[in-house]
Design a protein around this nucleic acid. Structure first.
Lengths: 137, 137, 137, 137
DNA sequence: GTGGTCTAGACCACC
DNA sequence: GTGGTCTAGACCACG
């Protein structure tokens, strides 16, 4: 099973995307406190990314207190991580949507037309999600 | 009046943001074909950005055929630019919203909650725009 | 003038030693808020160390809020850095002395003998410092 | 009674710390020539450390001639070990104190202030030792 | 010139 | 096997 996946280059650093993915996984309960995260080498293979990049992502999560090192064994999700990850996730979503909307408004395009596009894209995303769920069932 | 404004470090290169702003200005009719764009020096001062960065943005707009050099005078908006800029703008808006929505969905957050946030942020943006319009009147 | 110097491999990571040196320099007033620190490349040459290692040290100082990036120019000492660096320095000194003393006690060596050695080494260090100062004057 | 104890990650390898502890125990007479040292398994349990790590410490003590294998029984303290361990201990203490003092001086902190801290920490260590002795009595 | 990111690959200590 | 550190060198965006 593929636990984590990073999208194409969307400008954000890869190590940041990896960090976010881990947070989301913790927030969603896919990764639970006490559980080990994939090893640096394994995840780097899975994502086709340099081990250093994964290591950097993990290091930052460690300094944030979300991950804990177990000597010679790996890294595990810290105890209080779930709540903080949930908060971080919602913050992330809100920021992302807000900046997209602000950018759209900033173009000078008619707000009504923006709203139309917004609804279209929301519906498209929902349909895609349902389709995926349907195929999965 | 501030014709162009570039946001803080949102990851995208500044010269790209500047290029987009020019396109949007053309699409909105703020900048008309035949009109001169601000000089590199002027715009770089206005945006508190290095002149090289503005020059690069203009250079790329020239290679896209959206701007034309007028010898010894500066750069003017090309003739067929409006339609292409309008198309580019709508494309930009759609891409931006779609990727934001996809990213939000990718976090595993409950879609209903995402939709709530989406509505909140849309309303917030609308209110801010009205407020700005009101202050302008 | 050599602003910073890292000692031989004393077990601690080099990037940590570099970070400490910067903090000490700030605490001592050698580096003042608003001043630029040596560039990554320059310092890496000076210390005969890989640029990445210096970059890592600087990055951590940035996340600690002690250094601020000035786009395309370099890194400068942050405003409130002096106080925090002074505190960090004293903490560092105390930790270092305490652990050394604890380790010495942990060996089971007669406390009186430890104290003798302690006085000898303190005197030796003082003499060396004076000698250096004398030569410098 | 806990014969040996290894501190938290102080940067030095654990197997080295264990080796030192054995040497100190020999120097202090806690472990006498001809006496058996704890088995790898027993000591690894006591220290909550991987058996390999203890084994490595013992191996190095063997190559230094401080421990001798007794076929089918274990490892015993070698005959001439006491003197060498005493010397090593004093060397260790001196090195440790000197490097700590040098490091403290290297920070640029006022020597008088360093001396104050030094006295405080020395007193603190002495008090702690007395307290432990008191509790033991 | 500046820092930031990423890759590739090495060595170490520990399990 | 694990993570941590370091080196070497590349490319990018920006000044």
């Amino acid at each position: 099973m593929i636990l984590l996946d990073v999208g194409a280059a969307d400008g954000r650093p890869i190590y940041g995307q990896i960090g976010d993915r881990v947070k989301f996984a913790v927030a969603s309960g896919v990764l639970r406190p006490g559980e080990m995260v994939p090893s640096v080498r394994e995840l780097s293979k899975q994502l086709v990314v340099n081990p250093n990049t994964v290591a950097r992502a993990y290091r930052e999560l460690q300094t944030e207190g979300l991950l804990e090192a177990v000597r010679g064994t790996g890294l595990q999700v810290a105890d209080g991580a779930v709540e903080r990850c949930k908060a971080a996730r919602k913050e992330f979503v809100r920021d992302r949507l807000r900046s997209a909307i602000d950018d759209a408004r900033g173009t000078g395009l008619d707000p009504a037309e923006i709203e139309t596009v917004l609804h279209e894209e929301w519906a498209r995303g929902k349909a895609a999600a349902n389709g995926a769920a349907g195929r999965g069932a």
